[in-house]
């Protein structure tokens, strides 16, 4: 506890300053990879959600059309919102495990291990 409190309140525990780590090309690459995934993905799922809400709000006839039996277009699109949420979750976990975690672990290891 006491070591982490110190780490949290002063500079990084190693020799490099936070600004130096921030300027490190590997850190820039980590930030680029994170933002390059989460920003477009957020735009995508918010856009898809908004499209769905607007259809449910203003296109009642379309949403009430039957696809098969009593299953309507609206129900299918609603269930697709569930599917897309589960798919994006899985994609992000795979991406983070492969592309983000190794780089973050490497940089953190150097910050916390360096100079001790």
């Amino acid at each position: 506890m006491s070591t982490t409190e110190r780490a949290a309140e002063s500079g990084p525990p190693g020799t490099a300053t936070w600004a130096e780590v921030q300027a490190d090309p590997r850190f820039r690459e980590l930030r680029r990879r994170l933002r390059g995934f989460v920003f477009p993905m957020t735009a995508l799922f918010l856009g898809w959600y908004l499209l769905y809400v607007l259809l449910a709000d203003y296109a009642h006839e379309f949403m009430s059309m039957r696809v098969v039996g009593n299953i309507t277009v609206g129900l299918v699109l609603g269930l697709l919102q569930f599917v897309s949420t589960f798919v994006i979750t899985t994609l992000y976990v795979r991406y983070a495990n492969r592309r983000l975690d190794p780089l973050a672990d490497e940089i953190r290891g150097e910050i916390e291990g360096g100079g001790r």
Partner: peptide, 12 residues
């Protein structure tokens, strides 16, 4: 800089 490095790497 501290916040960004810590938030992305988990250092500290």
């Amino acid at each position: 800089a501290e916040m960004e490095v810590r938030s992305l790497t988990g250092a500290g």
